[in-house]
Every structure is written in structure tokens, then in C-alpha cells.
């Protein structure tokens, strides 16, 4: 049996999840220019909100997902409003912002562990067999198909917003030059808060999808950050298109890589790619060398 179609399918699914992470990560990085660890916790918050509403309280799945996305977005917004905006106004260095983000990330993760225990949890029901589809010799579940479609839709929507709307152009202006954006009349603090909210919603959604596809546990954030950061750096950090490309590239390299390498080396592949790019092409595929 030719396993190539299945590996392609696995790559696309992994890439879709990484793409959502990279989209959110790049949006925020473009505007704030420091490595932010909080998205790791936000993905877990998204997943756990759905788990709490859907699994524990038995609420409707669509409502739970929307709530999960919004809650994650809200926490991201809060992190800007309460912490990062103040650091920006004091002209704190990127290192300080990174350390602050690390603190917030650790705190939120600990909070989730306390509320939900550190056990790994499944989100979707296990009493029914999932509907699976077969295309060209590859098998995938309807959830995986949904993840793929949503990821593409998110990317297209975001690209259109950035390119066509005045909000989107303002976002791009702020990520080019925050000070000049203020001068021409953009309320940059408010805009950046929106950027945090939208980016965090995307990341919360990625956590929800991971929950559906595999499951959730409080420390899932580290994995999210590793894959998201790698995808973003490969594609070109701060570049929305680059992040999307890098995400799928990462998915393909990881899944095709284990054809030859033992499966337990999969996480090492992400690290390896990251280091390769940092050494040879740190600006990523889509960015021009400064």
C-alpha cells in the first residue's frame, strides 16, 4: 500500500493547526516585536473552556467553541491592557516584555493545572465512532477536515482584511512604524489591543482544534509555542503569508521526515528546522534580508 497519500493528509492536518498558531502569533509579533509566550497558555485556555462547557456542563458544542475562542481572545486582550501596554509606554526592552510574558504564561498554566488537574483530557465524545472519509487512499476524520477548511478560511479572511480594509492597513502600518502611525492619527494602543484580541482568538481556536483532534493538558502550551515559533521563523517572522507557508512546510517536513527517521524524533525535527533557519536564513522565506 502506498502510504504517501496518508502522510500527505497527516501533513496537511498538522500544517493546518500550526497555521492557525502562526497566524495569531505573527499578527501580534508584527505589532509588538517581542517574543510572546502567552499564546501558549491562550491555546490551553481555549481548549479548556470548551472542555469545561461541553464536556463538564454539557452545553451545545457550537456555543462552547465560540465561547472558547472569545475567552482566549479576551485573556489575550487582558494581557495587553494590563501588562504589555504599560511596558510599551515605559519603553521597556524586548527582553523585559519576554520575561513578563513568560511570567504570565507560567501563571496561567498553573491556574489551569489547579482548576483541571494535570491529567490529559479528551474533548470529543468517545461513544460514537468518528465519521471518516477516504480520499485517494488517505483516511481522515470529519474533525480533521474541518480543521483544514477552517485554517484556510482564517488565512484568506485575514489576508483580505489586511489588504483591503482600512483597519487592516492600519494594522500593517503599526507593525511597520508604531510612532509614525500615531502621528497620522491612528490610536495605536487601541489598535494593538484589537490585534491581541484577534490573534489570541486564532490561537485559542488552534488549542480547541488540538483538543478535538488529540486532547488537552495544561502544559500543551510549550508544544504550541515551539511549533508556532518555528513555523513563523521559517516563513518569515511577522509576515502573515510567511507564517501560513512555514506552517505547512513544517507539517510536511515533520511527517515525511519520519518516513526515514524513527517516530520518536518528530519533535526534534521542528527544533532542527528552527536551528537551521536561524543559522542560515533567519529572516525566513518570505521576508527580505534587512
Amino acid at each position: 500500500m502506498n502510504i504517501i497519500p496518508q502522510i500527505v493528509a497527516n501533513s496537511l492536518i498538522a500544517g493546518s493547526i500550526y497555521a492557525l498558531i502562526a497566524l495569531g502569533f505573527n499578527l501580534v509579533y508584527g505589532a509588538t516585536r517581542f517574543v510572546n509566550m502567552v499564546p501558549g497558555a491562550l491555546a490551553a485556555i481555549g481548549g479548556y473552556t470548551v472542555f469545561f462547557l461541553f464536556n463538564r456542563l454539557g452545553l451545545n458544542i457550537y456555543f462552547s467553541v465560540i465561547a472558547g475562542v472569545v475567552v482566549a481572545g479576551f485573556f489575550g486582550y487582558l494581557s495587553d491592557r494590563l501588562v504589555f501596554r504599560k511596558l510599551r509606554s515605559h519603553k521597556a526592552s524586548n527582553l523585559v516584555s519576554f520575561v513578563a510574558s513568560l511570567g504570565i504564561f507560567t501563571m496561567l498554566q498553573a491556574l489551569i493545572s489547579i482548576l483541571f488537574t494535570s491529567q490529559f483530557q479528551s474533548v470529543l465524545s468517545v461513544t460514537e465512532n468518528p465519521k471518516t472519509y477516504q480520499i485517494l487512499g488517505a483516511t481522515f476524520t470529519w474533525v480533521q477536515g474541518l480543521i483544514f477548511i477552517t485554517s484556510i478560511a482564517a488565512f484568506v479572511s485575514l489576508a483580505l482584511i489586511l489588504k483591503k480594509t482600512s483597519f487592516g492597513k492600519a494594522v500593517r502600518a503599526v507593525s511597520d512604524d508604531e510612532e509614525v502611525s500615531k502621528i497620522i492619527g491612528i490610536n495605536t494602543n487601541r489598535l494593538i489591543s484589537w490585534i491581541f484580541f484577534i490573534g489570541s482568538c486564532l490561537i485559542g481556536l488552534s488549542g480547541i482544534f488540538i483538543g478535538f483532534d488529540i486532547g488537552i493538558n495544561p502544559t500543551m502550551g510549550l508544544f504550541i509555542i515551539l511549533e508556532g515559533a518555528t513555523a513563523s521563523i521559517i516563513g518569515g517572522i511577522g509576515n502573515v503569508y510567511g507564517g501560513f507557508l512555514g506552517a505547512f512546510l513544517l507539517g510536511f517536513v515533520e511527517n515525511f521526515g519520519i518516513l526515514k527517521i524513527p517516530g520518536e524524533w518528530k519533535p526534534a525535527i521542528a527544533f532542527g528546522l528552527l536551528i537551521l533557519f536561524l543559522i542560515f536564513k533567519p529572516e525566513g522565506i518570505m521576508n527580505k534580508k534587512k
Binding site: 500500500m1 502510504i3 496518508q6 490529559f120 519520519i258 517516530g263 520518536e264 519533535p267
Partner: peptide
Amino acid sequence: EEGYQQDARDLRSQITKIKAAK
């Protein structure tokens, strides 16, 4: 024969390979 890290939560790559070996 496919190994996976004790804390891995995605075994699809390994399963794909095993399935192919029939």
C-alpha cells in the same frame, strides 16, 4: 517496530508506518 515518547500524544505517524507494513 515504532517507538514513541512516553508523553507523546500524536501517534499517527507511527501508526501510518505500521499499517503500511501489513
